[in-house]
Every structure is written in structure tokens, then in C-alpha cells.
């Protein structure tokens, strides 16, 4: 289910003094099975962009085509579409409302009018996906859980609709390193195992280096660059000019290159840097030994 965004522009508070152009002529395509990372400084329009992709916001101008069909056309069933394109908001834990975790996760499938048995199965599956134990938390009130657990329940609530595209807006913001890692591992699994197309907004370049297959860089409502992480992270000047950073590994690599070490310019993953370093220092040792 490819998503095609064409010349999308969005203005908030159109027609009064507070008018802000949050998106300005944005065009890109999301292919099936990819993991698209969206990065950009605060207020660059990332959240506004992802809310367009399942029809929660209407574009001021431009089009969004899902499977070639215009999302905002009169006849499109946007509610059905939202089940296929799941969106997890920034700080989703604030949207929980049911008495128990299970009921809350069942809210989505229930509104899809699925049979009882199917709903049960999906709740179990979704809880498994987010690594929560149904026995221990299933009957608890969502408000008794920790922040990280609440977030996972909220994500499970979207997963229970079995979307084929999952959009996550800063899923790891405000969590401790372990909580962050748990969420990222979970997203990684959904992408690799369940073949769900993923769009993820994040401020962490290291997370993006680990997961994304393609990156979309936003700046002031426009697309500043699109490309593979390797292409993007090998342009530190571009990134720093719009207030972004490169991953730790890329920074370390650049620093070592400055010191005169012979390393390729486009390393950005810790593993590949490690490999190169081992090779480099291994060679040296041999040389010294002679």
C-alpha cells in the first residue's frame, strides 16, 4: 500500500493573524515494507505531516494518494483507512481511558465491529508484540502502570487494528534507556517479522541509524533532504545547518579522520565502525610487531 504525498501544504489558523505555515509544498513516496525515519528540529512540521497521512488533518492544498486513491476525496472511507494506517501519537499514554488494559486495547478492534473471538486473539497478539504479559497486566487499570508500560499499552491499542502501515511519532521520547530500547526492539520486530511498513519520527539520530532504511529530513515545513541513512549522515554540514546532529558513531568517525586515521567518510553504525577500527588497529599491531 504505497503512500504518495504530492505538494502537500498545511496552514494552521488560516485566515487570521496567527497563521502558521506548518508544511510547505512537501512531496515524497513511502514504499511497501520500508522503514522511513522522519527527522527535523522542533516545530519543523513532523507531527503535522504524519497526521495528514491518515486523514486526521486536511491539507490546505496538495494531495495524499494511498494505493493511488485520493485520501481526501469525498467517497474515501477515512475511518476504514485509519485502521490500515495506524498512527501512534506523541505521548500516546494520555489517550488511555478504559477500566482495564485489555478493554483499552480492544477499543480499536471493537469499533471495527470484529467478532468477539477475533478481538480476544488480537488483544493477546498486540500485548505479545509490545512485550507485556497478559496474565499480570491484562486486568489492571491502565492508570496503575508505569509511564513506559502505559506507552506500550497505547501502542498495542493501535497494533490491535492490525494496520499494514504503522506511524509512530516519537515513540521513545521521555523514556529511560531500557524503556527506549524495549520500544525500539519492538518496532524493529514489527518491521522485520510482521513486514509492517513503518514511519517513525524521532529526535534520536542513533535510533534512526539503527532502524531506518530511508530518512526524510524536515526543516521549517519543507523537505531538506531524502535518502538512505548513509547518504544523509555523510552530510554533517547540512544536518548541523538545520540544527540536527549525526549519530555518535559518525561523530567519532569524523573525529578520528581529523586525527589522520584512514577510515571511510560514511560510517554511521557502531558495528561497522567497530569493524573498521579493529581492522585498522589490528593492522597497526602487526606492523609494530615486525
Amino acid at each position: 500500500m504505497p503512500i504518495e504525498v504530492k505538494n502537500l501544504t498545511h496552514c494552521y489558523s488560516e485566515g487570521n493573524a496567527l497563521k502558521t505555515v506548518a508544511l510547505n509544498d512537501v512531496s515524497f513516496t513511502v514504499e511497501d515494507g520500508e522503514f522511513l525515519g522522519i527527522i527535523g528540529h522542533t516545530g519543523s512540521g513532523k507531527s503535522t505531516l504524519v497526521q495528514h497521512l491518515n486523514g486526521l488533518l486536511k491539507p490546505s492544498s496538495g494531495q495524499i494518494l494511498i494505493d493511488g486513491e485520493d485520501l481526501n476525496a469525498e467517497k474515501t472511507d477515512r475511518r476504514a483507512l485509519r485502521q490500515r494506517i495506524g498512527l501512534v501519537f506523541q505521548y500516546p499514554e494520555y489517550q488511555l481511558f478504559e477500566e482495564t488494559v485489555e478493554k483499552d486495547i480492544a477499543f480499536g478492534p471493537k469499533s471495527m465491529k470484529l467478532p468477539e473471538a477475533e478481538i480476544e486473539e488480537r488483544v493477546s497478539w498486540a500485548l505479545e508484540c509490545v512485550h507485556l504479559d497478559r496474565e499480570t497486566v491484562g486486568k489492571k487499570s491502565p492508570f496503575e502502570l508505569s509511564g513506559g508500560q502505559m506507552r506500550r499499552v497505547a501502542i498495542a491499542g493501535v497494533l490491535a487494528m492490525k494496520p499494514s502501515v504503522l506511524i509512530l511519532d516519537e515513540p521513545s521520547a521521555g523514556l529511560d534507556p531500557m524503556g527506549r530500547d524495549a520500544i525500539l526492539t519492538m518496532v524493529e520486530e514489527l518491521h522485520a517479522r510482521d513486514h509492517i511498513t513503518i514511519l517513525m519520527v524521532s529526535h534520536s539520530m542513533d535510533d534512526m541509524a539503527r532502524l531506518a532504511t530511508r530518512l526524510l529530513v524536515m526543516s521549517e515545513g519543507k523537505i531538506a533532504a531524502v535518502g538512505t541513512p548513509r547518504e544523509i549522515f555523510s552530510q554533517p554540514e547540512l544536518l548541523s545547518s538545520i540544527g540536527l546532529d549525526v549519530p555518535e558513531a559518525a561523530r567519532l568517525c569524523a573525529r578520528l579522520r581529523q586525527e589522520g586515521y584512514d577510515l571511510p567518510a560514511d560510517l554511521y553504525r557502531p558495528e561497522e565502525l567497530k569493524e573498521h577500527l579493529l581492522r585498522l588497529f589490528g593492522e597497526r599491531k602487526e606492523g609494530a610487531g615486525c
Binding site: 497526521q51 491518515n54 486526521l56 475511518r79 485509519r82 485502521q83 495506524g86 498512527l87 501512534v88 501519537f89 500516546p92 494520555y94 489517550q95 481511558f97 477499543f107 480499536g108 469499533s111 471495527m112 491499542g157 493501535v158 487494528m161
Partner: peptide
């Protein structure tokens, strides 16, 4: 919150008075 619930399939716009009142719970 309204948008977040709509993303989960909530429907605030259709139905009679009672279903609409119920839809406000989330």
C-alpha cells in the same frame, strides 16, 4: 485526544444522541 482516539477508530460524528454521548467517554 480526540484525534488520537479517531486514529484508533473512534467515531465522534455519526449515530444518534445516545451513541454520540457514549462516544464522548474516550
Amino acid at each position: 485526544i480526540m484525534k488520537a482516539q479517531m486514529a484508533r477508530g473512534a467515531d465522534f460524528e455519526s449515530g444518534n444522541l445516545i451513541t454520540r454521548a457514549k462516544a464522548m467517554v474516550p
